[in-house]
Design a binder for these strands. Structure first.
Lengths: 155, 155
DNA sequence: AGTGAAAACCGTAGCGT
DNA sequence: ACGCTACGGTTTTCACT
């Protein structure tokens, strides 16, 4: 399943992970290629599914979302039975910006983004705890984001 | 600290969160503006720090990073004393793609990306446990990523 | 704040290497 | 595979509403 990447591909991915909106002409310059083959490689990486998309990163605090909470969720009974229903419910919650099914102390680990503690309480009581198969919830309030969405290490 | 956003700003942010490389002309069309004011708004959002950057999303499995682990780290003594040293160490580790200082069961929660379990073992024993002030580590292996980096809810 | 036109710049296809 | 050239489209500036 992993795709073979050469050195230039890796350079392209490194640049695009940091500057997703850079013009192809400048990308080409930075990776030491002319524009045409550079664009061809980018398209090939997109079509191979290596690059899955592009997106703008926002500063949460500036759009009134000052609180991030990392939430561990345990579910009732055997995970396999409930997994799909819970996953769909979590996926539909806009406050949940990421959700992983894990093996460890909890079943799911969520990243929840809300304006403040009052909103988090509302989310917890009104939404998350309303799910029928939730057994236990551990809330880890984020005090400081040390690092977020850092570039993936490319060899 | 939060910036005032009107309806069109929110529409712009919604589009750019999903399609960060969309041409301005098309963005303008989608939000119901002509190109010039649309670009002005995007620039203003960038300068106000609402948009902090743009980036390509990669498929980890296709670049040979098949394993994600969410790691809880407890540190010795009072957090404040060690916090800076640990944070700097974690920030320098390329396998650590995100790192949050939290209040809850653990002190730090990390997202670690590696090729496989063998590489994770190497990271754990050779890097993370080498930090002098680490007291306890809980590894939550990601079985399935249900949702990741979903768009932030914009009112 | 938005519009429209013009200039500069960029993306992309075709072809040659 | 890379690079060049050329065309068409996009971004960006500017004068105006």
């Amino acid at each position: 399943m992993p795709i073979r990447l050469d050195d230039i591909d890796r350079r392209i991915l490194r640049v695009l992970q940091a500057e997703g909106r850079i013009p192809n002409s400048e990308l080409a310059e930075r990776v030491g290629l002319s524009a045409t083959p550079c664009l061809r490689r980018v398209r090939a990486l997109e079509e191979a599914g290596v690059i899955t998309g592009y997106r703008a990163d926002l500063d949460r605090t500036r759009i009134g979302l000052g609180l991030t909470v990392l939430v561990g969720v345990k579910v009732d009974g055997h995970r396999d039975e409930n997994a799909r229903a819970i996953q769909e419910a979590l996926q539909a919650m806009p406050e949940v910006v990421s959700c992983h099914l894990v093996s460890g102390e909890t079943d799911f680990l969520l990243q929840v983004v809300v304006p403040d503690l009052a909103a988090y309480e509302r989310f917890l009581l009104g939404t998350l705890l309303k799910l029928p198969m939730v057994k236990d919830i551990r809330s880890n309030i984020v005090i400081r984001t040390v690092k977020e969405n850092a570039p993936l290490p490319l060899g």
